[in-house]
Design a protein around this nucleic acid. Structure first.
Length: 304
DNA sequence: AGTTGTCAAGCTAGT
DNA sequence: ACTAGCTTGACAACT
């Protein structure tokens, strides 16, 4: 059954953003420090909001630190904001919460271009620093896609595996791969997962768009064992196709009928669920309500 | 105050 | 050839 439920990056109920940024041309250390401070304060507010609403899973935005892996940024933000990171981390662990991070579309570890791989590496190190500074263990994950195909999926996949091996140890401990909707299916990810011994985040919408014919139940049966004890509970990304939009674009609102169907089909597995729907926390409320109705019991113990 | 062109970075597929 | 879409629009200059 679904244990923790979460949403991604933005809270629409609060009037703050933890992803404030600015243009590179207006970069200054003052501007950077001010923005980071605001972003961290907002992140704290979001987590407190979540706790009140019994939302125990959250994806932290990659924009928390603007230009974090850009060479322009030489500001020692890790040291300057050390204490605030620590407090946030303590809040997360002490309340039994879980967080994840999803580096952006530019983080391509398997690119044939050296420069792109180098940037990806820097970006992954930044994401890992955020979790390290918070003092969180390896169940708090960083998820990325395998990357581009470049005309040969096999060699593209091998390049990912090779470049992964060159990452710092602590990054490797937190990195998980997610099946995408165009290139690397769950079956592809399983090959890399078994070679590198890293877990897979199953994205339900992506799987419905790109698969090897496995029904959802079979997909779960395959991806769940890629999670070991130190990785925490398996993570699933849930979203729905937006009506009248291109395949893969995310709906705003959760459809109770579809969500109930999803719960029904996956109830024999224990996992945490990340909602990737544009209406954010509103859908998390809805999902929690539906779960409570279905199970007929209090969900306040979901973090156990 | 409201509008609009542009923004650090990559890649794919639909149009 | 262009552009929407991706985990997320928002900044900043202009009217």
């Amino acid at each position: 059954m679904i244990r923790k439920i979460g949403y991604a990056c933005i809270n629409l109920s609060l009037d703050c953003r933890s992803s404030r940024t600015f243009r590179l041309v207006s970069y200054s250390e003052e501007r950077l420090a001010e923005t980071i401070k605001g972003n961290l304060n907002c992140l704290q507010q979001i987590l407190e909001f979540n706790l009140k609403k019994q939302i125990y899973f959250f994806r932290i935005t990659s924009d928390l630190i603007p230009f974090a892996s850009h060479p322009v940024n030489q500001f020692p933000w890790q040291r300057v904001f050390k204490q605030q990171f620590k407090e946030i981390g303590r809040f997360i662990s002490s309340k039994g919460m879980r967080v994840s991070l999803h580096p952006g579309q530019f983080t391509i570890l398997n690119s044939p271009r050296k420069e792109v791989v180098k940037n990806a590496r820097r970006e992954l190190i930044y994401h890992n620093q955020v979790l390290d500074l918070m003092g969180l263990n390896s169940s708090h994950k960083i998820q990325i896609h395998v990357g581009g195909v470049y005309g040969n999926k096999q060699s593209a996949r091998l390049r990912f595996e090779k470049n992964f091996q060159c990452l710092p140890h602590s990054v490797k401990n937190r990195l998980v791969i997610e099946n995408d909707d165009r290139s690397f299916s769950l079956a592809d990810c399983l090959k890399t997962s078994s070679k590198l011994r890293i877990p897979i985040v199953l994205d339900s919408l992506h799987h419905s768009l790109l698969n090897e014919g496995e029904p959802l139940e079979k997909a779960f049966k395959n991806f769940v064992p890629t999670w070991s004890k130190k990785d925490g509970r398996p993570i699933v990304d849930y979203s729905e196709q937006a009506k009248n939009k291109r395949p893969g674009s995310h709906a705003s609102e959760l459809t109770p009928r579809l969500f109930k169907g999803f719960i029904e089909r996956t109830r024999r597995f224990n996992f945490d669920l990340m909602l990737e729907l544009k209406a954010k926390e509103k859908n998390a409320f809805r999902a929690l309500k539906i779960l409570a109705e279905l199970s007929g019991k209090d969900r306040s113990k979901q973090s156990e």
